[in-house]
Design a protein around this nucleic acid. Structure first.
Lengths: 246, 246
DNA sequence: TAAATGTTAATGGTAAGACCACTGATCTTT
DNA sequence: AAAGATCAGTGGTCTTACCATTAACATTTA
């Protein structure tokens, strides 16, 4: 006999699917207000609890925003939050320091390369601005400001690639990463001589991008990241598992 | 007066947070069985519905597996599914073809580079095996088998990097991507002359990795991906927004 | 008139109880 | 010992009820 299993899909998944399709074909646009939970339950012929579970799932994935007492709305900027689960995972998963950092290196190197090809004058101005802020932070001996402008520097380079997805992914990885090793990162700035080195490295990166030299940009970025990796690994007392990306 | 707003965190978020912390500090290990929904509700002094909403969220993010009638378990291989929302997003978001493909190129090129440095004899054997399967698929004119072995070929290269995270991320992106453009992908194999070209390209990639030549590996991989991108864009009638990654 | 205030209906948030289908282990029968 | 029946436990779903918040409307007040 050629029987096929009876459909046993969970109800909330069906609800998610229907809403997803409405978003896909454009019937639901960002900002739109969804039917109330009670109305949805009635229309779909399911309990309100099932509708709620579906909306929870969509909320976690960043597709809708639920306002208590107000209603449920299709979220405007889906995309940034899509990767929230990744951030959560990074807080749990231990011992993959070099694996994650390698991925970050892959992204950042590519970003530097692309930025050198595509950066607009406005992009360059932003990058330089962040670089100047780093220098100011050093002379003021303000390590917190230093870290902030450092992150902003890398962010502005990612933006210069004109690839929104690259910006989102790189940011998620870098943010989660910086959080999970904040101690080592702090140490990176407090070690005598390091601030000057970091500024030199950042300056080289900026100049390569400014001069529209993709190869040099990715080379200087790699040198910078490898240096930071080594310094932080030292603080964390970890040994690299294999040869670094070159 | 200096009042601060009362914390009005949603209950299910609190539940998620508590479970997350238990996973983070190791009290909950992969494979462990969670308390039943009813027990959790009693221990946490919340309703079962709230517990269920929390478990739904954890399920969507791939941290737990819920078996009807069996129980809830901490998932073994969290990581593959972490990015499921990404797959859903790709089905909604239009017009980011080149952005996503660029990210895929970044990953694949880096993977080829690293594979050439780190591939073990076993890795090389697997890569070659998939290459042979592609050739067989071509002589048999089996386009489905061709696509499958093509994906397997790229997967085995990613595995050869010895970086589990790279494998996971690249797979998620490549899978979602291939699904969303399955028509164009099919066309890629049905166009006269293309199968031979694809095999030539794959062979060059394999040889570069085998000869432990990272630079050549990433060059041949880029050529291959750019060719595929151009062919698929033609089918989809899309024009690149900017110069391709070089 | 216009701003502040009170009212109210709708909405999401939570709780409690009930029943069903499925799972897995135990017990019974063969 | 193997096969089948039994049964307690679990997630899946539905129903009902009440609370807290929101936003729109109506009212009062300066």
């Amino acid at each position: 006999m050629d029987f096929r299993p009876i459909q046993a899909k969970k109800i909330y998944e069906e609800v998610v699917e229907q809403i997803r399709q409405l978003m896909e074909n454009g019937s639901l646009k960002p900002g739109d207000k969804l039917l109330s939970e009670r109305e949805l339950a009635e229309k779909l012929q399911v309990s309100r609890a099932s509708v709620r579970e579906a909306l929870r799932a969509l909320e976690m994935m960043g597709f809708v925003e639920i306002k208590a007492g107000g209603g449920t709305f299709i979220k405007e900027t889906s995309g940034d939050d899509i990767i929230q689960p990744l951030a959560m995972f990074l807080s749990i998963e231990k011992g993959s320091f070099f694996e994650i950092y390698e991925i970050r290196k892959i992204f950042e190197i590519a970003a530097a390369h692309l930025a050198a090809q595509r950066a607009t004058p406005g992009d360059l101005a932003r990058i330089e601005e962040n670089l100047e802020m780093m220098k100011a932070a050093m002379t003021e001996d303000d390590s917190e400001k230093g870290e902030g402008s450092d992150a902003a520097f890398h962010f502005s380079i990612a933006e210069a690639t004109q690839n929104g997805w690259l910006v989102r992914l790189l940011n998620t990885i870098a943010d989660s990463f910086n959080k999970s090793i904040s101690i080592a990162r702090r140490q990176l700035y407090l070690t005598p001589g390091h601030p000057q080195l970091l500024i030199e490295q950042h300056t080289k990166i900026y100049e390569a991008i400014r001069d529209k030299n993709p190869i040099l940009a990715q080379k200087t970025m790699l040198e910078h990241l490898s240096f930071a990796e080594g310094a932080m690994a030292k603080t964390l007392k970890i040994e690299p598992e294999f040869k670094l990306l070159t």
